[in-house]
């Protein structure tokens, strides 16, 4: 009985058009939801059962909508309030929250945008959402210590080639055909820059101490960071691209990149 009650309420609270519309649609199909609700929830002269349940339905939708507005301000800016509202309606149908934390409620929005109708309007939306999700994930990623230059310099140089590098848990890499970070940067300045023009872009998002940063990087640097994320040795990172000539990076470029990674805390100790 208790399980049936909870399943009935969950179904009606999460109905995308509201409780009354869900009951009407069900009645049109010859369903029994209205009768089941009448047997389950009391109504009175102030509010009938559907109206009482609708209070919860509204709180469910708008609580999550508010959180996702905070997590995806760039997506919201490009779509506008009505477009974002409709997107989240679709999203909750496909990805109802399953985690104990509201912070996880919007985790799958980039995947939805990969195939959503809004893609035709703004092809960059999924990547923008991926970038904004990376900012959120970096914010409360693990506090693993970063590898700093002094610690690396203390190792015998003979050990460097076989040294296994790892990215700091807060580091997220994103390749896109659009400079999606410029959308978010404009939002943070209180502006709406609109959708960006296509431009091959490689981004790194990370947290140093308690502050989240992002930076556009070159293709070669992006590739090297990606092979680090797969557990490559320092020697393999240095050699990457040089044999095949796939990047124009010089040895000096690689050394400079390594110095930046160490300074910014992109590598885990």
């Amino acid at each position: 009985m208790l399980a049936e009650t909870q399943q009935l309420l969950w179904r009606l609270i999460t109905a995308p058009e509201g409780v009354a519309a869900a009951l009407a649609a069900d009645s049109d199909r010859g369903g029994t939801l209205r009768a089941r609700l009448a047997r389950t929830v009391r109504g009175d002269e102030k509010l009938d059962a559907a109206e009482r349940l609708d209070i919860y339905a509204n709180m469910y939708f708008f609580r999550i909508l508010d959180v996702l507005k905070e997590h995806y301000p760039g997506v919201r800016a490009l779509l506008g309030d009505v477009g974002f509202h409709n997107l989240i309606t679709d999203y909750l149908l496909r990805h109802p929250p399953a985690h104990f934390s509201l912070r996880e409620a919007g985790r799958h929005l980039p995947e939805l945008l990969d195939e959503h109708a809004t893609r035709a309007l703004h092809p960059c939306l999924a990547d923008l959402a991926r970038f904004e999700r990376a900012l959120n994930d970096a914010f409360d990623a693990s506090d693993a210590p970063a590898l700093r230059a002094a610690a690396l310099a203390a190792l015998p140089q003979a050990d460097w080639p076989n040294l296994r590098l790892a990215l700091h848990p807060s580091v997220h890499l994103l390749a896109s055909q659009w400079p999606v970070h410029t959308v978010r940067a404009a939002i943070d300045r209180g502006e709406n820059s609109g959708a960006p023009e296509p431009e091959a872009t490689w981004l790194c998002v990370w947290r140093d101490d308690l502050t989240v940063f992002h930076r556009a990087i070159g293709a070669g640097e992006f590739d090297r960071l990606q092979i680090i994320s797969r557990g490559a040795s320092f020697g393999a990172v240095c050699a990457h691209g040089s044999e095949a000539g796939s990047t124009d990076d010089t040895a000096q470029d690689v050394a400079a990149a390594l110095a930046r990674w160490l300074a910014d805390g992109w590598l885990a100790a």
């Binding site: 399980a3 909870q6 399943q7 309420l9 969950w10 609270i13 999460t14 919860y56 709180m59 469910y60 609580r63 999550i64 109802p96 929250p97 399953a98 985690h99 104990f100 509201l102 409620a105």
Partner: peptide
Amino acid sequence: TGVGSHNLHDLL
């Protein structure tokens, strides 16, 4: 707060 492995993020 939820059922069927879903969370309504509300206190029912």
